[in-house]
Each structure stands twice: as C-alpha cells, then as structure tokens.
C-alpha cells in the first residue's frame, strides 16, 4: 500500500510524467507557454482541479454506473471548474482576468479525464488526491520548462521582467534579436519533443526497442 502512495505522487513527476511519457495535455502546452506567468497559473490551476476532481470521483466511484461514467466525470470536472472560476471572480478579480480563457481550457484537458478514468475510478480518495497532485505538478513542470525557453528566447524577459538588456538589441545599436520562431505555437511542440528526448536519454527503460 505504501508503495502505491509513493508512486501515486512521485511517479507522474518522472517515469510516468503525463506530458513527457503519456503525451497528454499537449494542446494546452501549446496555448499557454509563450510566457512564464500564464504557464505557472495554468499549471497551478490544473493541479488543484485534478486533485479535487480525483477525490470527488474516488469518493463516489462505487456508485457510478459504468455506462455513464464518462458523463459523470465530465459533470464533476465542469462543476468544479465553474465553482473555482466563480470564487476567483468574487475574491481575486485580477487573477480571474489573468486566467480568462485558461480556466475554460482546463475542462478539456485530457490529463483530467485520463486520471479520473485510469486512477480515481479504482483507488481510494487519499491515493487519488496524491495522484492528482503528482500529475498536476508533472504537467506544470514541463509547462514551466517550455515557457522559460520560449519567453527568454522569444521576448528576452522572464515573468514579464526584462532579462536581456534593451541596449543589446539591433534597434538600439546592439547585435541581438529576439527569436520570433519561439513565439509560434509549433515551437512549443518542438520544445516538448526536446524535453521528451532529454528525459528518455536519462531513463533508458522508457526508450522504445
């Protein structure tokens, strides 16, 4: 039992990473990684929502009829996301403006449905909670790595703060230019592929024979 608990949280951070190994949640990885800040917010929100919905589904898992389980999962996720977004709007309006579209994107994130279907339907609430946390963090980790590269090389800043001095730019007489490619969504895919590459070269057992 102890092993399940440990794996539930640590597994998704490394050998069972939802993005790098299971290749889930790629769609939002493209959308929100042009800058670090939205990537952080998205990672945090997904972590909270996966953990909570995992717990809810795990609590009612024995009562859910198999024929409509996906619909039940979807209803739970959608309800949770709506409640969270309403609470944000009421108490931290600035954050909810920041999140705008991302909060809606969470409902469609495949990691959520994947974890509910694969883990929460078979396991107890506490393990499901850990699994949700682990997967959310694993997802956030990859998002943050990709976003750091894209924002640093694409806009010369991090979290909106300028890292590469203005005076280095060609416009101001320097010899540096931002890489416009980094801002394109396709570059996120290439960076995710690089993350997977590095990850697999450290974990030989994940490589395809």
């Amino acid at each position: 039992m102890a092993e399940i608990k440990e794996n539930a949280f640590l597994g998704p951070l490394n050998k069972n990473n939802p993005v790098a190994v299971q290749v889930l949640g790629i769609c939002s990885a493209l959308a929100v990684t042009a800058e670090l800040k939205p990537a952080l917010i998205m990672g945090l929100s997904v972590t909270i929502i996966v953990a909570l919905s995992n717990v809810v589904i795990s609590l009612i898992r024995k009562t859910i009829p198999t024929s409509v389980r996906i619909i039940v999962q979807l209803v739970v996720v959608a309800a949770l996301v709506t409640v969270v977004s309403e609470v944000l709007k009421a108490f931290v309006y600035d954050v909810s403006v920041q999140l705008s579209v991302y909060i809606g994107l969470i409902i469609t994130n495949c990691i959520l449905m994947g974890r509910l279907e694969a883990f929460a339907m078979q396991n107890k609430p506490w393990e499901s909670f850990l699994d949700g946390l682990g997967n959310g963090c694993g997802y956030a980790m990859v998002l943050i790595i990709v976003a750091i590269f894209r924002e640093l090389l694409g806009s010369g800043s991090l979290m909106g703060y300028r890292v590469i001095p203005e005076s280095w730019y060609v416009d101001n007489g320097g010899c540096y230019m931002n890489n416009g490619m980094m801002m394109m969504p396709s570059m996120a895919l290439i960076l995710v592929a690089c993350v997977i590459w590095v990850h697999r070269s450290f974990n030989k057992d994940l490589q395809d024979k």
Binding site: I64, V68, I71, V72, A79, T82
Partner: peptide
C-alpha cells in the same frame, strides 16, 4: 442509471446556483 444522473445533475445545478447567487 436514470435516477443516478437526475440526482447528480440536480445536486450540481443546486451547487452552481447557490455559488452564483452568493457571489
């Protein structure tokens, strides 16, 4: 299945309308 879905939907809509009403 039918009763289950009705109950779930009623609970969720109640929850959502209360949240929206309060906030």
């Amino acid at each position: 299945v039918i009763i289950y879905m009705v109950v779930i939907v009623v609970i969720v809509s109640l929850l959502l309308s209360i949240t929206s009403g309060v906030l």
